[in-house]
């Protein structure tokens, strides 16, 4: 685990260019999606999560899930065409888990329609991702914190 301004980062995951979501490749070709420490910090305490029904196909740009924190609601961004396998029952039952454990509390598992390699073609990982992640944290003056209760 690495960190910038208290914002944790895991080098083995894949990240969108804005570092809003993380994606983990699973051995069966599916992808697991969650919010980064940056996203959960910027969002504040998350009170609601909704994941679309399993089996729903979502093109790039159409969200798989929505979240609500305070009085803000919005999509968890989706960057690739996929079919939803499932939402995380633990997160659906207890949304603030996304704040307490952003890399453990995944949001959804999806099947990328064109395969994991193509889905992740524009994602960043490893040291390149860490450099970009830290740059966003510093540029926006983000200091990560974990909320509980």
């Amino acid at each position: 685990m690495q960190a910038c301004n208290g914002c944790e980062f895991i080098g083995t995951l894949y990240y969108d260019p804005e570092f809003q979501i993380w994606v983990r490749r699973e051995q069966n070709g599916s992808l697991t999606v969650g919010m980064t420490d940056i996203s959960q910090t910027v969002a504040g305490k998350i009170l609601h999560v909704r994941v679309r029904r399993p089996g729903t196909r979502r093109p790039a740009g159409k969200p798989v899930a929505t979240v609500e924190s305070g009085k803000w609601a919005g999509p968890v961004p989706n960057y690739f065409d996929c079919v939803i396998i499932e939402g995380n029952p633990a997160v659906l039952a207890d949304p603030p888990l996304l704040n307490a454990d952003p890399y453990g509390a995944w949001i959804s598992r999806v099947e990328p329609t064109l395969g994991a390699d193509l889905a992740l073609a524009d994602f960043l990982t490893g040291e390149t991702a860490f450099a970009g992640y830290c740059e966003r944290v510093r540029n926006e003056g983000i200091q990560c914190e974990r909320r509980t209760g």
Partner: peptide, 8 residues
């Protein structure tokens, strides 16, 4: 800013 609390 991207901070939702500050924006509100």
């Amino acid at each position: 800013t991207a901070d939702m609390t500050v924006i509100a």
